[in-house]
Design a protein around this nucleic acid. Structure first.
Length: 438
RNA sequence: GCGUCGGUCGGAUAGUGGCUAUUCCAGGUGACUGUAAAUCACCCGCCUUCGGGCAUCGUUGGUUCGAGUCCAACCCGGCGCA
């Protein structure tokens, strides 16, 4: 993997660049659509590529449970399995999350009204002591060595360690993988955040060690012309176990470490220092924040991480957050918001989000946005999309997801262009003035 | 006309004489940030100072401390027989 910075913003950490992976280039800053179970929900890979996405992210935990990482490896790796392929037949870049987020979503946040982004007014943020919620039901429990998960599919128990997460990710075969981390809840107190951070740092070292070991094995097995963990670069129909053809580009994935540290400045900086000091290929910035805390946290971290390596702000993707992230040195974003909101009937427009099921759109014969170039806006009117949602037709979620992803992917592309054109701050102001987040 | 079964919110439904009348759908409004999410929450008779107040199970009476529930008559509908 190779990262080249093309242009930097004056007086801020922002930059535009090109990240070259085993399966092609990603022009950064870039938005990465989420395809948790090796599918961007309701969309075909063609649709995702056509709307302008260059890379997608799948999830280790979900694919490990179903259909299993070994099966994906046997199928030839994620790219082949899900046919993440451009119109010329070449594969596109992919990444996998480590399962660390599920430590949060199935653990501390399970069954509670805690989300990744909390309101600053949330009373739980003001409680200085940690909740005593040890009896609360959760599907993920943190142990010394890793995390035990109770499968939501069949109730079976699985213990995932940093080593296990990296092994699974190597089997899945994405181009960029992440270290196993603990995403903490903002409701945890400082003492717990410190403990969790220590754990995440140990896990980072172990993830890196396991990764390096696997990379060596993969090199050796490549030298021996036999690789179970073929990088998905084999032609369709060929077995992953067969001898790679001469000249076939096989490479091990790049590994990103993840910075945590919650809302605390010292912990954030400590984490950036520690993780940034390890030999990762890039860095993820994780955690759950109060929205108002996010820019500070990102700034602290970006200022410390090595400038030459890409930075990925994990799980963030509302328009105002994208500007904030880019300005503070973020190169990659992934987020479920465009697809989840789309499926649930909320649609992005330049003036803010609209809920397409609302009464007013039932007889609105205009497109979602007149000047939008996405497939949905070029072909359909609001009334029809509203009709699909009211009628519970699957196409509604698809059309809304196409528009939302196009909107966000394209917004980040425009942000990128504005950096190249020395117009970032102008563009930001102009966009946010119109866009009313609600 | 006789017999019979039934009438509960916009639709469909539940409701041993006892407290605030159930659930689903439709309708309305929100929420959603590394996806247990094509999901979830609230509202859906009237009024309200948001504490609550007042109505209401076809209609009218009755029995009862208390009736959607029991009784009578009537109205309406389905079915059967003439």
């Amino acid at each position: 993997m190779y990262f080249k910075i093309e242009k930097k913003l004056n007086n801020s950490l922002g930059r535009a660049g090109v990240l070259t992976t085993a399966h092609g280039e990603i022009h950064t800053p870039a938005f990465v659509p989420v395809g948790t179970k090796a599918t961007v929900k309701s969309l075909s890979p063609d649709q995702v590529l056509d709307l302008g996405a260059e890379v997608i992210l799948a999830n280790t935990y979900h694919l490990y449970l179903q259909p299993g990482d070994e099966l994906v490896a046997k199928a030839g790796g994620l790219h082949t399995f899900m046919n993440w392929r451009r119109s010329d037949g070449s594969f596109g870049p992919m990444m996998t999350d480590s399962g660390g987020f599920q430590v949060f979503s199935l653990g501390a946040a399970y069954g509670k009204e805690i989300s990744k982004i909390s309101k600053i007014t949330d009373p739980s943020l003001l409680i200085p002591e940690r909740f005593d919620d040890s009896d609360a039901p959760r599907l993920a429990k943190i142990g010394q060595d890793g995390v035990s998960f109770k499968s939501h599919l069949d109730g079976s128990i699985h213990y995932i360690t940093p080593e296990k997460s990296i092994q699974i990710q190597h089997n899945l075969g994405a181009d960029i993988i992440f270290a196993f981390d603990e995403c903490t809840s903002p409701t945890e107190d400082l003492k717990y955040q410190e403990e969790a951070l220590e754990r995440t740092h140990r896990w980072a070292e172990r993830s890196l060690a396991e990764h390096q070991k696997l990379v060596e094995e993969e090199k050796a097995s490549l030298a021996g012309s036999l690789s179970l963990r073929a990088r998905g670069a084999l032609p369709l129909g060929s077995s992953a176990c067969e001898t790679p053809r001469k000249g076939t580009f096989l490479s091990s994935p790049a590994l990103f470490g993840i910075v945590q540290g919650g809302r605390d400045e010292n912990l954030r900086k400590k984490s950036a220092q520690f993780i940034g000091g390890l030999a990762f290929d890039g860095y993820g910035i994780g955690g759950s924040f109060a929205k108002e805390d996010m820019s500070r946290a990102v700034k602290w971290v970006s200022g410390i991480l090595p400038e030459s390596k890409p930075r990925h702000l994990l799980g963030i993707g509302e328009p105002e957050d994208l500007f904030m992230g880019v300005e503070n040195g973020v190169d990659l974003f992934d987020c479920v918001a465009p697809t989840r909101l789309g499926r649930n009937g909320t649609i992005y427009t330049k003036k803010g989000k609209i809920i397409i099921m609302n009464k007013q759109f039932r007889d609105d014969f205009s497109p979602i946005e007149k000047d939008c170039k996405c497939y949905t806006c070029k072909n359909y009117m609001r009334a029809y999309i509203a009709h699909l949602f009211h009628g519970k037709e699957m196409l509604g979620g698809t059309l809304a997801s196409i528009h939302n992803l196009y909107f966000i992917v394209n917004l980040v592309k425009k942000i990128r262009q504005s950096i190249l054109d020395d117009k970032f701050f102008e563009f930001k102001e102009k966009f946010l003035q119109k866009y009313k987040s609600r």
